Structure formats: structure tokens, C-alpha cells
Amino acid sequence: MASPANFLPTITLPTAQLQTISPGALAYLGDAVYELYIRSQYLLPPKRLQSYHQQVVAQVRAESQAHHLRSLESLLTGEELEILRRGRNAASSRSKRVNPEIYQQATSLEALMGYLYLTNPQRLAYLLAQLKLDPTLEE
């Protein structure tokens, strides 16, 4: 599988620019970062595109993201917990499919992923490597 440390190119933003990015925008970026990581983890063994899709969707849905967030919380720093809080509060649109608390947790995880992508890719890689992905999802 792809190494979490090098699955994405890195971007460095000056602190002043970073502080202008809203938690919603961090979650927007983090959603893409998280999904790309998940997709990279299910590439092997080779399978049909529909199987890839089913496995990835199972991991990127709000319920799975909330579960992954809970599994990581004990590893997070104070700064990262603050990003989670800000991301949770940024969950302005409500999903009709899931409980609002689950949706907020998923959004906060995405905000953290976006923030770490921009500030500390090594830390992002470490946390992603801690995720317990289900290798037995339908193929």
C-alpha cells in the first residue's frame, strides 16, 4: 500500500495566510486528502472498479469518519483538538442522512486533515497510519 508519508505533494503556507483559511475550507481540503488516502489504501489487490468504489465509500461516509476520529482522539495534541472544535462548529449544512453529531465529528476530522496537510504532513501521515481500515470490506 501507499506510504502515508508520501501519498500527496506538500504545500507550505505562511502562517498569516493559513490563519485566513476558514474551518469549512480546511474541511473541504481535508475531505479530498482523506479520500485520496483511503483510495490509495484499497488499490491492492487489484479488483473491479465497483469494488474499489464500495470499499472507499464505506470508509469515507460520515459514520466511518466519526469512528476514525474517536479512535484518534487520545493521540491528538491541544492544538489539534482546537482544530477539531473549530471544524465541528463549521459543520453548518446538515445532512439528512446522518445524525448531526456524527456529521459534526466527520467535518471536524476533515478540518484536521486539511490543517495537517497544510502545516505538518509528517503528523498527518502518522495519524493516517493509525487508522484501522477494514480490509475485509466486500470485494
Score class of each variant (00 low, 15 high):
Asn6Ser: 09
Asn6Gly: 10
Phe7Thr: 07
Leu8Val: 09
Pro9Glu: 03
Ile11Cys: 07
Ala16Trp: 10
Thr20His: 09
Ile21Phe: 09
Ser22Gly: 11
Gly24Val: 01
Gly24Ile: 06
Ala27Leu: 02
Gly30Leu: 06
Ile38Gln: 11
Ile38Asn: 12
Ser40Ala: 12
Gln41Asn: 08
Leu43Thr: 03
Pro45Trp: 01
Pro46Phe: 00
Leu49Phe: 14
Ser51Ile: 03
Ser51Asp: 15
Tyr52Gln: 08
Gln55Glu: 15
Gln59Cys: 13
Arg61Gln: 12
Ala66Phe: 07
Ala66Tyr: 09
Leu69Asp: 06
Ser74Trp: 05
Leu76Ala: 08
Leu76Phe: 10
Gly78Ser: 03
Glu79Arg: 11
Glu80Ser: 08
Glu82Asp: 05
Ile83Glu: 03
Arg85Ser: 03
Arg86Ala: 10
Arg88Met: 00
Ala90Lys: 02
Ala90Thr: 06
Ser93Val: 06
Arg94Ala: 12
Ser95Arg: 05
Lys96Leu: 08
Arg97Cys: 04
Val98Gln: 02
Asn99Pro: 02
Glu101Tyr: 00
Glu101Ile: 04
Tyr103Gln: 06
Gln104Met: 06
Gln105Val: 00
Ala106Ser: 05
Glu110Tyr: 04
Ala111Arg: 03
Ala111Gly: 09
Met113Ser: 05
Leu118Cys: 05
Leu118Lys: 01
Asn120Thr: 05
Gln122His: 12
Gln122Arg: 14
Arg123Pro: 15
Tyr126Arg: 13
Leu128Val: 11
Ala129Val: 03
Leu131Pro: 11
Thr136Gln: 15
Leu137Gln: 15
Glu138Trp: 15
